[in-house]
Design a protein around this nucleic acid. Structure first.
Lengths: 229, 229
DNA sequence: CCGATGCCTTGACGTAGATCAAGAGATTTC
DNA sequence: GAAATCTCTTGATCTACGTCAAGGCATCGG
């Protein structure tokens, strides 16, 4: 599949005239990253942005003591590294491939030029950034106003639709990563999953399998209306 | 001072051709809010955005139990409520006037039209959203990876330049608000200020006065290289 | 098939910070 | 200028969660 095909399939570019797509395809540079490879590090200069074609990328912060907070996990069709590009400063966080990942890199100039030709591209990007701000708002709320069981319940309800097998589903990331996404550590996550299971909210099945037994209960937990015993 | 004058002075619109400014001035609606008045609430629909002319606005989240987390405090020249407008969903947080405040309201359509006429407006807005994302990243990092003394030290260093009187300066917000901005509560903030004072890092002077005695010490604290005893 | 390496779980313990409660200054109001 | 209200401080306690340490289960290479 050639570059133009790739780009045309990305929701972000849907509905754009063919010349625009061709122009972007010309400017784009495909890059492949192996699992665990660093895509960029906090503090580096951003001269453009990436678009995920395949795989998953985590964007994260590290504390001096080595604790990690995942800011978001991005999959196919989502842009990465655009904040540095638009604010004209360095990357505020690092990015790493969580699995074999293919990315397209777009230099800043090509993108700015595209906006000049078709301002609707700007509106799309504004919508993407606005959605991202909304997600960050939710994360801030979680970290500041909710406790871990609440956050976890929210996550489970949101990702119920992940990799299903039978009536259960599988977490699509290792538990250590989930802990880092929820702003906690693996030990705590493990304990809370066990408590949820013992209260009949969920059923654990092997390392990654989870079955939701009491959806309402989880929803109450997520909203802070209920607490674990 | 008429509307056009106001708009022309806002950094956000600087350098735009006169017709554009006139167009925006036509579309803008001035609104005045008293101290404490709600500008919009979480969950409402956003049909446009606001620009602060005078005063200060806080954007915040509330927990079911009533605890507040301030997301940011916006002053003259800064836009408010743009996330809802661009993402096409409801406001993700509430906004309230912290003092007598004058705002300009711009309906969504007028702004979109402006972008079509001059795409550079979109780039400015992208830069604003990107900077905001960066600030949220820092807040997430604070909440997840730093402890309160660290966050407070960072705040003091950033706002040293606020309202100065002599060699001290005054906090420009009440301590309860500062606590909410740092993701803690007034009692904890009070205790930590007292500890900083007893360690000779700062000197407290009345209700809002603060003098920084040991800037390096605060910087080490902010970076997590040092801890309070 | 078996040891090794990495992920996950469980237990005992420590601590930052929230909660509850009471008082001390400020600031406003009439 | 006294009363009332608001804001801040300080103390005693509680608790959610992190830390440290050890053991259980997987998956993988030989």
């Amino acid at each position: 599949m050639d570059m133009l095909q790739h780009i045309a399939l990305v929701p972000f570019f849907q509905g754009l005239p063919k010349e625009q797509l061709e122009q972007m395809a010309m400017a784009a540079l495909e890059q492949v990253f192996k699992k665990g490879q660093i895509i960029f590090s906090e503090g580096e200069d951003g001269t453009g942005f990436y678009l995920v074609l395949k795989g998953r990328v985590k964007v994260f912060k590290l504390s001096p003591e080595g604790k990690e907070q995942i800011l978001h996990i991005l999959g196919p069709g989502e842009p990465v590294g655009e904040v540095a590009m638009f604010s004209g400063e360095c990357f505020p966080a690092g990015a790493q491939a969580m699995e074999e990942t293919r990315l397209l890199f777009f230099p800043r100039e090509a993108f700015v030029e595209m906006i000049r030709r078709d301002p609707s591209v700007a509106l799309r990007m504004l919508a993407v950034l606005a959605k991202r701000l909304r997600k960050f708002t939710a994360l801030i709320e979680d970290l500041s106003l909710k406790e871990v069981p609440s956050r976890l319940a929210g996550y489970l309800l949101e990702h119920e639709r992940s990799v299903r097998t039978g009536s259960c589903f599988n977490l699509e990331i290792p538990k250590a990563q989930l802990a880092s996404l929820l702003g906690t550590i693996p030990e705590t996550l493990s304990r809370i999953l066990a408590r949820m299971a013992s209260e009949g909210l969920i059923q654990l099945d092997g390392t990654r399998g989870i079955r939701i037994l009491d959806k309402e209960g989880l929803e109450e937990l997520a909203q802070g209306l209920r607490r674990l015993a």
